[in-house]
Amino acid sequence: MPAAIKLHQLRAFVAVARLGSIRAASRAAHLSQPALTKSIQELEDGVGAKLFIRRRQGVVMTNIGESFFKHASLILEELRVAQEDIQQRLGLAGGSVNIGVGGSIARTIMPQVITRFHREYPNVKIRIVEGQLVSMIPALRQGELDFTINTYYQGHLDNELSYEYLMDREYQVVVRRGHPLEHATSITQLLECDWTMPTPNGSYYRLLHDLFADRDMMPKISVTCETFMACTSLVAQSDFVSILSRDVISDPILGNHLVPLAVCEPLPKAGFYLIQRKDTALTPMGASLAQLFRQQCRVPMSF
């Protein structure tokens, strides 16, 4: 009969797996290396399998270790959420909320929401990850993110997640002010330009990629930018062309540098959703932050 797995063994295993070495994990966990090594050995004896391969430069997980890590990290995240849920229901507003946001959300809606939330709950720590949904699915699955506000592509749904519609946003072709083709009226006039856009592997930009392919007018995407800041900075300071959210282009800080083009080809609107795991309820603080995002998404944007 397998030995009972203890919580400190799981924590030791996850720490070593994430940091790649017992030495780094012992420093992060404020434990001695022998104590950490003993916990790992006891865990391996308990599960009846090797979880790590020891090497001179550190450790790497075995195939079994990688599979076990998915379960172990999720257990620890679920336990954290459960403990914080109890504390918050007792009126002790502490703990943490981990969220993901798309680049345009980070620039427009997120600052007002976070400022209001922090004012109401100053003792709650907030962690914000920016990017497309495709980069956040593993963290959502493992419980490392409570939810994300993002777009998604309906052809690539993840059945483990729930999608709550919040709003639509318009997107436009954009160039820098003074660009040689800033008066272009068709995307076909821009096909020889260098374009930069986020990865087409998911969300709204996957929809654009397929749309351009269907119309036989695929732009030459020379640079793939994974962050909003990289994309906007490149467009603002070069002759690259991109497609960005209309409210981002109208931002007063960027407005002096970016010009939306009045092209004749209509672009689809982007639907933004509150996305989370289906089988996990948010803590009271997580639910409060999600509600603030819902309220802010209903506020009309002025252009």
Rank of each mutant, 00 (worst) to 15 (best):
M110Y: 13
P111S: 08
V113F: 11
I114L: 15
T115S: 03
R116F: 00
F117M: 04
H118F: 11
H118D: 10
R119P: 06
R119T: 08
Y121D: 04
P122A: 12
P122E: 14
N123F: 14
V124A: 12
V124G: 13
K125Q: 14
E130P: 10
E130I: 06
E130F: 12
G131N: 09
V134Y: 15
L140W: 06
L140H: 01
R141K: 01
R141F: 06
R141T: 04
R141V: 02
L145S: 09
D146E: 14
D146L: 09
N150M: 00
T151M: 03
T151F: 07
N159C: 03
N159F: 08
L161M: 15
S162N: 13
L166K: 11
L166W: 12
L166F: 14
E170M: 04
R176N: 13
R176A: 15
G178V: 04
H179P: 05
H179T: 01
E182V: 05
H183F: 07
A184L: 05
Q189D: 11
L190P: 12
L191W: 11
W195D: 00
T196R: 03
T196Q: 10
M197F: 12
P200V: 02
S203L: 02
S203V: 02
S203C: 01
Y205S: 02
L207G: 02
H209E: 07
F212D: 00
D214R: 05
P219W: 02
K220Q: 07
I221P: 10
E226P: 01
E226S: 05
T227L: 01
A230W: 01
C231P: 09
T232C: 10
S233P: 04
V235N: 11
Q237E: 05
L244A: 00
S245M: 08
V248Q: 13
